[in-house]
Design a protein around this nucleic acid. Structure first.
Lengths: 160, 160
DNA sequence: CGTACAATCCGTAGCAGCTACAGGTTCAAG
DNA sequence: CTTGAACCTGTAGCTGCTACGGATTGTACG
């Protein structure tokens, strides 16, 4: 059961997976697409990881959890690898991503409001007729398509 | 330029695309996966659409805009097609989806907060050193992975 | 030392939900 | 009848993984 860590600090891919919470297949995937550099191998060809690779994978995982795309992560890592990144560069990427997150939140909140309004018109009865279906079939009703903001808010007013 | 609509109420796929705002390729895709039933064809094989298909596509598009998955839409349409759906069935799907939207909003707001905190630690200078990178490389710092809530909030405190 | 069995290997294919070709046919205006 | 836009089919690509299948290693136990 104890797979390693014994006296060698080099981990197999399974141990690294456990340590970082990152799926084995995903680790190999990251290597394949070049986010992780090719791991050193045992004689038999099994991947072995040291501390540096572990920290790098941790970075990727945390960054992913914050919703950065693999491409953004690639850019960040390239900056770090180059050794001559600036705070400004990193901030630009971060702030850009923050903007996208905020847009998504706004869109989803709009969607949520529409869904709430629609659900409220449902009595949930066994009647073979539902105002939600009607609303969805009716061209004029539901919220403006998310993506950019619209000046008028017609959601709850227009729905019932 | 006027493509049709002339005196026939049947539209070509391009006209339908314009009318609904749904990409031509996407319309064909919806047909392929069975959301739209196979269109009737001209002698030459071009798709022709009547009002009913147009309304159905509109339904799909609006429902998609609200974030329902194609599978949920398929279910809704099956209910409608069967002609014996109940308000309760529709409401169940809607409320379920609403729950997911709310979860996503919560997760994204958490992410947004972390990003804000991180960005705040950046002075945006030309210094080859950025606290954001440090935070992302440091195992202990960033926000708990979204998905379920954590009791302690260490974000802004822990980050600088 | 042999053997079993876990761990790992590689390559490929699949998921959602489209989008983008290429290389051909049809439609409609002039 | 000719031109050029619209349309056809089929396939491949995108993101970010995940899940095989069938082979090979690594290792603990007897």
């Amino acid at each position: 059961m104890e797979r390693n860590t014994a006296r060698s600090n080099r981990l197999g891919i399974g141990a690294l997976s456990e340590q970082t919470g990152c799926n084995i297949e995903t680790i190999r995937y990251y290597e394949r697409i070049g986010l992780l550099s090719p791991a050193t191998r045992s004689q038999g060809g099994h991947r072995l990881y040291g501390e540096a690779q572990g920290r790098r994978l941790g970075f990727i995982r945390r960054t992913r959890e914050l919703g950065f795309t693999l491409d953004q992560i690639r850019t960040l890592l390239k900056l770090v690898d180059g050794g001559r990144y600036t705070c400004a560069q990193v901030k630009r990427i971060t702030v850009h991503h923050l903007g996208e997150v905020r847009r998504k939140v706004a869109d989803l909140r709009t969607i949520g409001r529409v869904l709430e309004d629609m659900a409220a018109t449902c009595d949930g009865g066994t009647v073979p007729k539902c105002p939600v279906i009607d609303a969805l079939f009716d061209p004029a009703r539901p919220a403006p398509p998310p993506g950019r903001r619209s000046p008028r808010r017609s959601t709850s007013a227009g729905l019932r």
